[in-house]
Write a protein that binds this DNA or RNA. Structure first.
Length: 557
DNA sequence: CGATCTACGTCGTTAGCCGT
DNA sequence: ACGGCTAACGACGTAGATCG
């Protein structure tokens, strides 16, 4: 390389930023599915990016996991050019341009995939991860998303090469700026020197983009908080019984946070809070905000791929809304079919759909014969004979199995329950799995019934310390918070406005948002019961439920 | 001189962190 | 979930220091 480029200011230095998406963790175990690059320099603020999808080689597949994180499946790649063609495009551009270095985040990975290609690149690689380790050693996480987010670039949720190139270029600009201002590193020669001579400091103290005083000034009241990126996007919505304690716990206890939470706090620049009257209301509001905003770090309450379904009583028909003939539910379906529908397939035919086999054995290969043998053993265990199985029998059996399981958990330490050592395709393992599906279904139906009752209810509870304090009250109608207020001591609990609504009417309002809202409410009820708070609950037209009975009901959900 | 302790280097294993 | 790298750790061995 010419000495002149080694002495060019890093701002002006012409670089090539690259990023790729692949199907595996190394070239020996994966293929390129996307390659993006940008010819740029730190001085350039909106670089042009070339992003190319790449066709899969014959017979290659994209794992479910990779499809999920990249959003790229085989269908997205059918019309894509071959790796060779993309490589030639990059090579043609390489010949036509000046470039002093290739920049990538975690260059080791990109390099292992890009270097074997005949791209005509023989330049030094600069790794923004290696720089970040020395420049930002206190950052809780040093992945591209965390580093870029800390510096102010929020990556899209799908991992795509073009976006990653833009983020890496952004990070490079920020680092070049820092180098000049704080480290007397001005040229590529300086940078190479600095990298060699600066080991990553060990016990560096934690750094955050979020100003300390801002979180320390939060109120110690219940409420909902939004963690915001530099650009104001909502990264995460959470609830707290004390906003100050909860939010500050993210920044105090690095040891106990999961790696995705580390990535999250690395990016937080600001926080917005909504105070609520109680933590119960905070939990309900949190659900509403998550449904509305779908923040990237709220995995569990987001809609994701979950759907509400109802099943017919013979389990063969399903519908997203309930109808007089399709009213088992609401159930939550994560995939194409609900596991319980397996029973319909098993009852209907002696050679069940092989598609079910994977579901049954947790992804293992199980053939139809093994499935039939497992079902036969299941019938034998439970005295179901060989005639057609009646759904009512299955439901009763499900309740028995569920009760047996609850007893086993209550008596034994749940960690010491017998672990099934049978191979996944043995009749024993399959029969046991069928039992599990049935008892889970039974529990789901019980929960569905409960949530439907709860959708027309009135709740009052003691939130403050003093029993003289007025009770907080929530009126739930059509699955929503209809009214919230206070109930004076001695004042009786009113009748829910929708207490006359039929089961079908109640099911009619059960979309996923309502399902989750009532589920959250149930969780909060459980918390109040566990905390020994006095509470009064009136579901439907029944008399108010006493705490002890509520505790028993909640136990079985 | 031999026994014991400490300091230091080397080797092999492990845990954690990146990427997809 | 998986591959691959590195920092961290612990086991081990050797050399040198110290002491009886």
């Amino acid at each position: 390389m010419a000495d002149s480029t080694m002495l060019t200011s890093l701002f002006e230095l012409p670089i090539l930023v690259v990023d790729c998406q692949t199907t595996g963790a190394s070239p020996a175990h994966g293929h390129l599915i996307e390659l993006a690059w940008s010819w740029t320099a730190a001085a350039l603020h909106s670089p042009d990016v070339v992003a190319r999808k790449i066709a899969l080689p014959q017979g290659a597949t994209v794992s479910r996991r990779v499809q999920q994180i990249t959003g790229l499946g085989p269908l997205d790649l059918v019309d894509a050019p071959a790796a060779l063609e993309v490589c030639q495009e990059l090579r043609a551009q390489t010949c036509a341009r000046q470039v002093a270095a290739v920049v990538a985040h975690y260059a080791r990975f990109e390099r292992s995939f890009v270097e074997p290609l005949d791209t005509g690149l023989s330049h030094p690689w600069i790794c923004t991860h290696a720089i970040a380790r020395r420049l930002l050693p206190g950052l809780p996480r040093l992945g591209l998303r965390a580093v870029a987010g800390y510096l102010g670039y929020t990556l899209a949720e799908e991992k795509r090469a073009g976006d990653h190139v833009l983020a890496t270029a952004f990070v490079w600009r920020a680092f070049v700026d820092l180098f000049e201002r704080e480290h007397a590193v001005f040229t590529l020669a300086d940078l190479m020197d600095w990298l060699v001579q600066t080991p990553a400091p060990r016990d560096a103290s934690r750094i955050y983009a979020m100003p300390r005083e801002k979180r320390l000034a939060l109120p110690e009241t219940p409420g909902v908080y939004h963690l915001l990126s530099r650009s104001g996007d909502v990264l995460y919505v959470g609830k707290a019984s004390s906003l100050k304690d909860r939010v500050n716990s993210y920044f105090r206890s690095p040891g106990t946070l999961s790696s995705s939470k580390h990535e999250l706090v690395s990016q937080v620049h600001d926080i917005a809070v909504t105070e609520t009257g109680s933590s119960l209301e905070a939990a309900l509001l949190e659900n509403e905000h998550i449904k509305h905003l779908a923040p990237p770090y709220n995995a569990s309450l987001r809609e994701g791929r979950r759907r509400v379904v109802y099943l017919s009583s013979n389990l063969t028909e399903s519908s997203p809304v309930s109808a007089p003939t399709v009213m088992l539910g609401p159930l939550i379906r994560r995939d194409e079919r609900h596991p319980i529908e397996l029973f319909a397939a098993l009852v209907e035919t002696t050679t069940p759909d092989a598609l079910w086999a994977g579901e049954l054995a947790g992804g293992h290969d199980v053939d139809a014969a093994a499935l039939a043998a497992g079902f036969a053993l299941f019938r034998e265990r439970h005295g179901l004979g060989t005639q057609a199985v009646v759904l009512a029998d299955l439901l009763r059996l499900g309740r028995e199995l569920l009760r047996a399981r609850e007893r086993a958990i209550a008596i034994d330490d749940p960690d010491e329950l017998p672990v099934d050592e049978q191979p996944a395709d043995s009749p024993q393992a399959i029969a046991t799995r069928l039992e599990r599906i049935l008892s889970n279904f039974s529990r789901e139906l019980a929960r569905a019934r409960w949530l439907c009752r709860l959708s027309e209810s009135v709740l009052a509870w003691e939130d403050g310390e003093s029993p003289e304090h007025p009770r907080r009250m929530l009126v739930i109608h059509q699955g929503r918070v209809w009214e919230q207020g206070e109930l004076e001591a001695g004042e009786p609990l009113p009748l829910p406005p929708g207490h006359r609504r039929s089961r079908l009417q109640r099911q009619g309002v059960m979309d996923l948002g309502t399902y989750d809202r009532l589920r959250v409410l149930t969780t909060e009820l459980r918390r109040l019961v566990a905390a020994d708070k006095a509470l009064w609950l009136r579901v439907g037209h029944a008399e108010p439920i006493k705490t002890a009975r509520l505790a028993r009901i909640l136990l079985h959900l």
